[in-house]
Design a binder for these strands. Structure first.
Lengths: 200, 200
DNA sequence: ATTAGATAAATGAATGGTCATTCATGTTAT
DNA sequence: ATAACATGAATGACCATTCATTTATCTAAT
């Protein structure tokens, strides 16, 4: 109980610190200070620095997956599904402005070898997009010439880059909703059979 | 002359090493070994480790920009322009499989403060996309409700993620041309006024 | 209700390994 | 001979991790 509490205090401190300084530049002592525990305490809850990063990543992505899958199950229209995915992703990244960066770090930075011995949540996450697309193709809503494997990468990349910029750049003139709308507009039009018209 | 030679030998060694190990895990001695020079020699050509990264980034991105802009100037159709951008980007990343990763690293990893004191080539690069879109909007080819600032991020993100995966993942079943086609298909449909039909 | 003796958690100073960077020395070219 | 280049071993800073010690929590006996 106390333990649970401390574990998650460290996780959220780490998310913050990693995002601010990057994984390699972040010091354990930074995380410890942010979490208001001693350096050594961190090693009671995690094996090593990399383990912290991995935990942050898995826990946070895990939450998003659960959330998204739950919401998806309440709908059948693949267009709606895409909308849900897009807005869930962007909202999650906005809510936890550090998370977007941590995902980036974990995704690109980390030593490839280490990465493979855990089957990561992340690939399950992008698979959701591929499945939405496949569904839509079966129903004739999305074009047959779209390759779900490629499209999922492109879509994830687009969303990811958009949220990266939130935290880095200055031009935060748009609200999450505006951005979600705009993204959906582009992505949906990109793969739909019919153009923008509503079903007549 | 000898100097020039060594400078670029180091650059290309560094590109390779950074991509393979990541900026922080790469050792100067790795780069030195790869470039077949002594560790100290590197400091005759670069101020420090970060300076090497920055140089790699600027030089390589610089080349792509020149290339792309040159090609764009030979065409007027914004659809063609998008096609050129997409295929140039993907081809460049494929040709230099390390570069894609270095861009990622520089883009996400590096300490934000340092990043700002050089006005980086990168933002000029994405601006190209925004300009293509604005042009197309003026000509009524691209939809007015697309916001070029957002679309450029989305497009760059999509392309970037696609090329990241080339180097990381196993599923390299597609050729560059296939991928370029597919991307163009999605991105163009995403912003075009008219659906897929050719002008009648 | 208090105390003593355990056990569990937490602490943070000390350790040790890892490099980036320097520079005294060597090599090459002019 | 002298300047320009190149070398790589030595230096020193940095920081993840450990562990001897301290502090808090629990158990049970008086």
């Amino acid at each position: 109980m106390k333990a649970e509490n401390k574990h998650s205090k460290i996780i959220s401190a780490a998310t913050k610190v990693f995002a601010k300084k990057g994984f390699f530049t972040a010091r354990i002592s930074d995380i410890a200070k942010e979490a208001k525990v001693a350096d050594g305490t961190i090693y009671l809850y995690f094996n090593n620095k990399y383990d912290i990063l991995l935990s942050v990543f898995e826990e946070e992505v895990g939450k998003i997956i659960e959330n998204t899958e739950q919401l998806l199950s309440t709908e059948c229209d693949p267009r709606k599904h895409l909308e849900i995915f897009v807005s869930q992703h962007l909202m999650a990244m906005k809510k936890n402005r550090y998370l977007a960066e941590v995902i980036q770090i974990e995704l690109r930075q980390t030593h490839k070898v280490i990465k493979e011995y855990r089957d990561n949540k992340f690939s399950r996450y992008t698979t959701i997009i591929a499945e939405i697309i496949k569904d839509g193709q079966k129903m004739g809503i999305y074009r047959q010439d779209i390759k779900p494997d490629l499209a999922k990468r492109a879509f994830f990349g687009a969303l990811d880059e958009i949220s990266r910029v939130w935290n880095t750049s200055l031009e935060t003139n748009y609200s999450v909703e505006e951005i979600a709308d705009q993204m959906l507009l582009i992505l949906l039009a990109g793969i739909q059979t019919e153009p923008l018209t509503e079903p007549e």
